[in-house]
């Protein structure tokens, strides 16, 4: 237990990266720096804690009340002693401040060659946009290369938390915040939302996928190209999840902010301006010009979303597949990730 309290179970102070009693596995120089400061403060704190508790216990036992025995006389103050126990803590916390400050400043100075990924938090998912314009639900990064995250939010404040890298940054609506890291190990690690954001705050999880040297580019190329490599229905389902469609349009027949997409294709639609049938043209126009045809009972609130023809095509294929009138292959409404998001092996 003592070893565990001291954080030495796996020798973290020797620079190894395994998990300890206190800390999860660390993946970067910054993380081991943080662990070092954590341990430093831990040792100092333990010393003072034990000092206080041992003295307290000794006094309670040694000077316990006995019948007929008065308290012994001792001074009611002692200047040198009081200066000592004020001065020593000041020096110690001064060093704690300095180490913490130095390491924090490293987080603020972003290397010029950092690979930039835009992060958008929204209730209750993360979106990671890569320089190619490709958007993924997980954070994929190259190993041994500085990565800069530029965060914002579309609704309330979220906070991106990467415990293994010991970093966290709020995603604030209306402004951009930044953070960077350089991961030194490949693998898959947790990514969480740390700022309370409502009902599914605790489900706002994603994966941090660190690709080994040279493999990140392959993954990105393949992932960015998913429209060409995946069947249209699956690609459409992916777009449906990634591009925010599912926030308003369900696939189970229950109307949300917008109408459900289940059994939409091939069926009559009651518009505010009349009636029509949901065919390919209707869906295409509804996506590209949302306010042109408003379904009765709904508000004209859908924003225009930048989509290419290929993307619209994939979405139409997916919507078709959700209707028995469409001839698409059913995909079972599974929300699991298609293969394209897996790290390239």
């Amino acid at each position: 237990m003592a070893n565990m309290l001291l954080g030495t179970a796996n020798g973290s102070i020797l620079g190894q990266s395994g998990p300890t009693f206190w800390m999860p596995r660390e993946l970067s120089d910054h993380a081991s720096d943080v662990d070092w400061i954590f341990n430093y403060i831990l040792y100092v704190s333990l010393f003072f804690f034990l000092l206080i508790i041992v003295l307290m216990t000794v006094f309670v036992i040694r000077y316990r009340r006995r019948p007929g025995q008065e308290a012994l006389s001792s001074p009611t103050h002692n200047l040198p002693l009081e200066v000592l126990w004020t001065g020593v803590p000041i020096i110690l916390v001064g060093t704690m401040f300095f180490f913490g400050f130095r390491s924090y400043m490293d987080l603020g100075v972003i290397p010029l060659n950092a690979y930039e990924i835009k992060v958008t938090g929204q209730k209750w998912k993360w979106q990671f946009e890569y320089p190619t314009g490709y958007i993924d639900e997980d954070l994929h990064v190259p190993m041994d290369r500085p990565v800069q995250l530029t965060l914002t939010s579309t609704d309330v404040i979220h906070s991106l938390f990467l415990p293994n890298l010991r970093i966290k940054r709020d995603a604030v609506p209306g402004r951009y915040t930044k953070i960077w890291f350089r991961a030194s190990e490949a693998g898959e690690f947790p990514l969480m939302c740390a700022e309370y954001c409502g009902t599914r705050h605790s489900d706002m999880l994603a994966r941090l996928v660190i690709h080994p040297r040279g493999e990140f580019e392959q993954w990105l190329t393949k992932a960015s190209n998913f429209l060409a490599t995946m069947p249209p229905v699956e690609a459409g389902q992916r777009l449906y999840q990634l591009r925010g469609c599912k926030q308003c349009h369900s696939i189970d027949g229950v109307a949300g902010i917008g109408p459900s997409l289940k059994n939409l294709f091939g069926h009559p639609v009651q518009l505010q301006s009349g009636q029509t049938t949901a065919d390919e043209n209707y869906i295409r126009e509804s996506i590209l010009e949302p306010s042109s045809q408003i379904v009765a009972g709904f508000e004209p609130v859908m924003p225009r979303i930048r989509l290419s023809d290929a993307e619209v095509g994939a979405l139409i294929a997916y919507i078709k597949s959700l209707s028995e009138a469409g001839q698409g292959v059913p995909v079972g409404g599974s929300t699991t990730q298609p293969a394209a998001t897996q790290p390239a092996a």
Binding site: K118, G244, E299, V301
Partner: peptide
């Protein structure tokens, strides 16, 4: 421009 896929403002 930042979040092309932002949900509809309601």
């Amino acid at each position: 421009a930042v979040t092309a896929s932002a949900p509809a403002p309601v």
